[in-house]
Design a protein around this nucleic acid. Structure first.
Lengths: 224, 224
DNA sequence: ACAATAGTGTCTGTTAGACAGTATTCA
DNA sequence: TGAATACTGTCTAACAGACACTATTGT
């Protein structure tokens, strides 16, 4: 394996979802060197002849490795240094991808993907994580948490339509604290970012279901 | 000039300062192809044999081209696509560098650097800007503005010690709005991020001078 | 009727923003 | 003494957070 005189350019995707109020990251067991047998992020090289830009590269890699398109994809940070990859000087453009859990649970059975709990600064991640991927995961999760209280970003962890109680559970999981339901309702509805789409019944009074009308990067008011 | 099969990896630095309440970006006239004669950001290739990581590359480039170290440097975004550079598929890791104006004004005379007003989505930038540098500049400025209201980041546009009135002028310039002096004072001092360092006299009552005690990435309260 | 969940009204303490007023220097 | 700038106190409206209350379903 030669030491490149060009830096390596890769894209890594931190695939997150939430199950039972806990954030989960989807990792693949690496079947090639380096770090064969370790758990790692879904990622790959940029292909200069195929990829229009870095997010297109991320989409292609997800399509090729998982046959799947994420609900939400955004660039988080670029981790670039001499020592993170034994093959040479390496830059990874790290992306955050958010999805409702059902999609990833299905993929887990078909594609050798596994979901790991992301909590307490990665304490529950597997011990044999490839490269600096534990750092990349934490940076992506930090970004999600930072945006949560002031944006609708967490709605991408929900299905197309959802109840306020479900949305609240997601925000509680991401922010790591309980939220008062009455206040949460008031703030979210006052922001006019949700469209009502009919009722849904369960084990009590039926609840209004909503759809995200317009994704909002920055609320005026803090949502939680 | 061959079309590389590896992507190009560069670092570009958006050098900002504030003069008379207006944000300025420092640009160099390019003396090499491509885009020779255009104005461009200070930037260059990552050198895999010299640079430990991307911010070290940024520091080296500033040292080599301007013989200068910035007061504050942070990564903003990575702009990576097939068309931004005629030489081939190119990724630029964009950094934001903040400095007090005196340093850049001196450099402007010595090193062929020039300061341009950054306002109204870049309306006053020179017409012949290299590559996609106008986009990179706007993204860096957006980042600065987004962090301003909740952090001490703007203090890096000030000298080591400064008055509250000077600090307020900086925040007003970055945020683009007037701030009530009494409220600004109260919020900043309540945050306990400044250390007093003696008085300074000018044309009225002498004012308390301060030094930034601890840079704060996120205030609890909004500063302005 | 009761359990369960959805949704409303209201109170309290805190904060942002506005503004009047006092303090200390120089000319 | 007056201009200029620094600093303080206080009022109001908006907001976050807490909590009691009503509403609507299934069993």
């Amino acid at each position: 394996m030669p030491n490149h005189s060009f830096p390596i350019l890769t894209v890594d995707i931190v695939l997150l979802t939430m199950i039972d109020g806990r954030l989960k990251v989807a990792l693949m067991e690496r079947d090639k060197e380096p770090e064969r047998g370790c758990w790692g992020l879904v990622g790959g090289f940029v292909h200069v002849d195929e990829d229009e830009d870095s997010s297109a590269a991320a989409m292609r890699i997800l399509r090729e490795k998982l046959r799947f398109s994420p609900g939400h994809l955004e660039q988080v940070v670029t981790e670039a240094n001499a020592h993170r990859d034994p093959r040479g000087w390496s830059a990874s453009i790290v992306h955050l991808a958010l999805n409702e859990p059902s999609v990833l649970e299905v993929l887990g059975q078909r594609e050798g993907l596994k979901l790991f709990d992301v909590h307490d600064d990665g304490a529950r991640l597997p011990g044999n994580l490839a490269f600096d991927h534990s750092i990349l995961i934490l940076k992506a999760v930090d970004r999600l948490r930072a945006k949560a209280a002031y944006s609708t970003i967490c709605c991408h962890l929900l299905p197309e339509t959802f109840l306020l109680a479900e949305m609240q559970e997601i925000y509680e999981g991401v922010l790591g604290k309980k939220i008062n339901p009455a206040n949460f309702r008031r703030k979210v509805l006052d922001a006019h970012v949700l469209d009502p789409v009919g009722l849904r019944s369960s084990s009590g009074r039926p609840a209004q279901a909503y759809r995200l009308a317009r994704p909002l990067d920055y609320f005026e008011r803090q949502i939680a």
